[in-house]
Nucleic acid binder design. Structure first.
Lengths: 370, 370
DNA sequence: CCCTTGATTGAATCCTGAG
DNA sequence: ACTCAGGATTCAATCAAGG
């Protein structure tokens, strides 16, 4: 993967680069509706305190009376409002965002996401398997951080690789609580003095799960608080494109060096389990046309209902006529019915769902795609 | 424990009673600085559209009660602001509050808590061991709810029974994520028709942990959204005083009957509250996410079969795709296969089963349980 | 009595493409 | 924008019934 640009409407995107400067200005300079996914790990209120200014630009002092505290929330809220608005503009209509935070800032981010019309899809808890203990024993060990996954708007057709995530979780659907270790050991980047290069480096396993779940290969992922580039490193591994924004030169340098060393996984490794929805549609009538089923033959349901196949690929059962789905639904008094799994036929003495015939056709299409 | 009143400054408190009517008016009628702890489970403002059916076509019994309907975020925010303000006035200076919610409302509650000068001590995640799945496969299983624990103000000397919680947790610090089952079975209260008496009854184990952690015997606990009285029932068991407020007569009746039956220090209830530790199940996908195995790497079987690892933790070998177990079984023509012992990798020149990687992760979990 | 099997259920912002 | 219809989609726990 090399640095390149990508056409997005009239303008181009600076792909696989780390932009310097203020993330709001940088995002405002990008074309609207051009980004597939944003991952954002913004600074927390506490860490911002030294930098905070009142709306009139006077410095906020460290006194913790109520007014000052409210004032600092207001400054943080303005900051949150502005970067979330800039992010929303550049997201594609079907784009989505992830934000991560702790109780210091995540409630304000979540409320502002909702206020701006983002549509929350899940809040996800990153449950740290090796958190820092609470040394003074005055509170519960702070053992998790919260992520919020939201689409640009309620109507967005967001990306979610359900089957891949289910595969990652040994065949049961992935839950909203993720147990993952914090970033330590050789993965934790050090600066020239051997100190940790960034105070809150996120583990690559976290980004791996986020990107496998909610992007596809080739998607463009933007991280406005790039830090030491975990998002970029994992995006590159997974065959995605990234755009990073980071105002601290020291972090940019570490990130560039880090990402240069990353190798992309090979193509076959990047394909993931897909759902049936992604497979080609096979009309039931095709089974009849192909002679796999004969008009006049009967199908049975698990509970003993019977229907007869007609030449046009519809079924008839007493006075009910229609598609395999409609007749199944009508006989069960159900709002809907998947006829492919509902109706069965006798084959070699065994009763099997007609879906196995569809699978045969799909296998053929796989071999000889048209 | 009987109904009684307690001197609180000039006024008295209606202890161990369920007050009817609006919780804001009722709280405003109580003396200031008189309550030790508030536990609040307000309406979540779920915004459900159509019906939802399970794959077997049964209909999900949704929370569609009038009390959960709000016209807009603005209306909900005003409601939240008013009841949180009323709650704060009646809390003692060293008092604290717990609120519980989901992503629909918890961010708005958290932000307003901060705005009003409450001091957040922890956000706590209730990880449900048996949540309702995501039936359509469109999102992550919504497997948790969030609690926020906050003191009345930053300077409050709040109650935290560190050692008791540590004991509850088999000798290690209690973390901010709690694994507890949802309320089902005989604990779930039924109405006269045998239907669930309340759509969102909380488990007693949850309240047990909250009250043991942050109150002492004799403390006064107020619940402004009392429902069927879980807070009151557990408070009574644990020798605390409670005040409930509930505007629905049906819920009040159920709660009164329930609490009358509760005996103090009910041993069985105590034993229910300590959740058994979950078996550490390690999905193969986690080895990939954690970088212990790389997508694209190959695994081998004892008899020389080869498979390649994909980014979602599945394997591919020629035209066979699936979990480590599925692919192993297919290649051997066997009905099943333990992929952990079947598949091997090269490590330090030796061929070893991938199970040693799982053992590594389990060892880590052993060291730092929970 | 035990064991197996099947039915039921839980705070849910739960479909999508063709016409 | 809309409607219509194909057809994809579930985990853990409790409890009752049957063997």
């Amino acid at each position: 993967m090399t640095t390149k640009t990508k056409k997005a409407g009239a303008a181009t995107l600076p792909l696989n680069q780390i932009l310097d400067g203020d993330c709001i200005e940088r995002m405002n300079a990008l074309p609207a509706n051009s980004i597939d996914l944003i991952f954002a790990d913004p600074p927390y209120n506490l860490q911002l305190k030294g930098d905070l200014h009142r709306p009139d630009n006077s410095k906020v002092d460290a006194v913790d009376n109520d007014w000052d505290q409210f004032d600092s929330f207001r400054v943080y809220d303005n900051f949150t409002r502005d970067w979330l608005a800039a992010a929303r503009r550049i997201l594609k209509p079907n784009g989505a965002i992830w934000v991560i935070g702790s109780y210091h800032n995540v409630f304000r981010m979540g409320a502002e996401l909702q206020n701006q019309g983002y549509w929350i899809l899940n809040d996800v808890v990153w449950r740290k398997s090796n958190p820092m203990p609470n040394f003074r024993g005055k509170r519960f060990t702070n053992a998790h951080e919260t992520l919020i996954w939201a689409s640009k708007e309620e109507a967005s057709k967001y990306t979610f690789n359900y089957e891949a995530l289910k595969a990652l979780n040994e065949g049961v659907q992935m839950r909203s609580d993720w147990v993952l270790p914090i970033c330590t050991g050789h993965e934790r980047l050090k600066d020239d003095n051997g100190e940790k290069a960034h105070p809150t480096q996120k583990p690559e396993s976290l980004l791996h799960r986020v990107l496998v779940a909610t992007t596809n290969p080739g998607d463009v992922i933007l991280d406005p608080f790039f830090g030491t580039g975990t998002t970029g490193a994992v995006a590159k591994m997974l065959g995605r494109e990234f755009i990073g924004i980071e105002r601290e030169e020291a972090y940019r340098k570490v990130a560039e060096k880090r990402i240069a060393k990353v190798r992309k996984f090979d193509k076959e490794a990047l394909s993931v389990s897909t759902s049936k929805r992604a497979q080609p549609r096979v009309p039931f009538g095709q089974l009849v046309e192909r002679g796999m089923l004969r008009p006049g033959e009967t199908l049975t349901s698990p509970r003993g209902k019977i229907a007869k196949i007609r030449a046009d690929g519809t079924l008839v059962s007493h006075d009910v006529k229609g598609s395999i789905h409609q007749v199944g639904a009508a006989l069960e008094g159900a709002p809907s019915c998947n006829g492919w799994t509902y109706w069965h036929l006798k084959k070699d003495g065994k009763t099997v769902p007609i879906d196995i015939l569809r699978q045969q056709i799909r296998a053929e299409m796989e071999e000889r795609p048209n």
